[in-house]
Design a protein around this nucleic acid. Structure first.
Lengths: 125, 125
DNA sequence: ACGCAATGCGTGGCAGACTAAGCATTGTTG
DNA sequence: CAACAATGCTTAGTCTGCCACGCATTGCGT
């Protein structure tokens, strides 16, 4: 389906930003490295730009990339979603442990969950 | 442009995350709504997934979307400086482990953090 | 031995992101 | 008026993200 309503919403957002910056589609095209014809299609809601184009546009507008992503509906994640992420997710997302340490911790954790019987654990290659 | 080095880097990151989660490509495919054949190609660095796929994968892994974007090289700015979820808190609030098991996990975790030499055993690399 | 399910990977093809070139309109200048 | 430039838009085409399907291998159960 060509006409996506999310694409239309982002198109409006892009057009408003461009008009606020007081530049034409071609000027924005040169500033961002995207073709002007594509910008026209995006503003009219025909297409949803990829993440790379969003990044380029954000740089051209000098606004944070995360704002672009949020406006394009790509980052609709709740900022403060769940309170208890779970041990597995917490370990995996940790920034202080390296991959081996994470694997070891997960292995121990899973062994606890599986009961006293030692299960054939995964080959951590 | 078949061999894109950024695609390869993200492929490695994706594969490591999948192995940490201990799931197969097809399981990840069902959890994220992406086809398993495509996941295989992404892990091997053949393609660079779009932002929508990144979002779906982040949800499947229960890690923030911004982490996915950063790892895929799409967000080279604004680290957003989020506080780590906290493995300790996750372990303490877990409902499936008993006190002994929690203590053991915490002890292993703290050993990893405090040890100047993080790995006295299990060479693995 | 025989299935049979699960895993990773290859192939063909469709849909969509993206571009180059051109059209139509509106100035703005001589 | 002619001539030029700038704007937004359309069209035709290329490239690639992505999937449905199938193949080869491994492992488990009978």
């Amino acid at each position: 389906m060509g006409t996506d309503e999310a694409a239309q919403a982002f198109g409006d957002f892009l057009q408003s930003q461009r008009r606020l910056a007081n530049i034409s589609q071609r000027q924005l095209a040169r500033a961002s490295g995207v073709s002007d014809s594509y910008l026209s299609q995006v503003e009219r809601g025909l297409y949803r730009p990829s993440a790379e184009v969003l990044k380029a546009l954000a740089h051209a507008f000098e606004i944070p990339v995360s704002t672009m992503f949020t406006q394009s509906g790509l980052m609709d994640e709740a900022p403060e979603a769940e309170a208890s992420p779970g041990i597995e997710a917490a370990i995996r997302h940790d920034t202080q442990l390296n991959a081996e340490q994470k694997a070891a911790l997960l292995s121990v954790y899973r062994a606890f969950l599986n009961g006293p019987r030692g299960e054939p654990h995964t080959p951590l290659d």
